[in-house]
Design a binder for these strands. Structure first.
Length: 213
DNA sequence: CGTTCGATGCACT
DNA sequence: GTGCATCGAACGT
């Protein structure tokens, strides 16, 4: 069942927590890929220095100021697209970054896209791509799912990019500080499935847990 | 194990 | 011109 608009129109930390275990689906050119969300990070408001809304409204961050339940995709480091889910945008600009998935549908399509994205360099020293590595890390998520700027501002209630509740019981969820950022590192706004091997980050990032808030 | 570094594009000041 | 919500190879220990 596709998540309704009301799911996204809630406090961002609640949305982040509840997104873990849901299934992100992308249909593109007749190919369907999907994966269970196992790791997310919240970016909340202009007072969060790591949030793209920190400088106030700009051309790029406009989706953060729009209605909830839409995608915010941007190019990061000139190399990777990162996909966010806009939340309580009517109250304040905020979103949830999708950092890792456990692949479900279209696993061979994901493998192909990951390999194609590594053109020029020898992939993984010749080793093969494990399923739980296909969508491990926010750049890998978009690579494997085929998500680009074309999906920016996509309505998650549409049929191209959306999130489903498939009724599976989510495992234990843990919280930690956000990783890979240089400012706003104090906030404990990263939620992840504790026992999933598809979660990104090193041992330190995983053990640096703290209770929510 | 650990750290460093190159690839690469664009929003923002 | 600066700096980034990255990835993975290539090194050093």
């Amino acid at each position: 069942m596709k998540l309704p608009r009301a799911f996204y129109d809630r406090p961002t930390l609640d949305v982040a927590r509840d997104l873990v275990g849901k299934v992100l689906v992308h249909r593109r050119r007749g190919l369907t890929t999907s994966g269970a969300i196992v790791e997310v990070e919240a970016y909340i408001g202009e007072s969060d220095p790591a949030c793209h809304a920190a400088p106030g409204p700009t051309r790029r961050n406009a989706p953060l100021y729009g209605p909830p339940g839409f995608a915010y995709v941007y190019l990061n480091y000139g190399i990777h697209y990162l996909v966010n889910i806009v939340t309580e945008a009517e109250r304040q600009p905020a979103a949830v970054l999708i950092r890792a998935l456990e692949p479900v549908d279209g696993i061979e399509v994901m493998r192909r896209r990951r390999r194609r994205a590594m053109k020029g360099r020898r992939p993984l020293n010749g080793r093969s791509l494990n399923t739980h590595d296909l969508c491990r890390g926010p750049g890998n998520v978009t690579m494997a799912m085929g998500i680009t700027l074309a999906q920016n501002e996509a309505d998650l209630l549409g049929d191209e990019l959306f999130i489903e509740d498939r009724g599976s019981e989510p495992g234990a969820i843990a919280w930690s500080k956000r990783i890979g950022i240089r400012v706003g590192i104090d906030r404990v706004w990263r939620a992840y499935m504790r026992d999933s091997t598809a979660v990104s980050g090193n041992e330190k990032a995983l053990t640096r847990n703290a209770p929510r808030r």
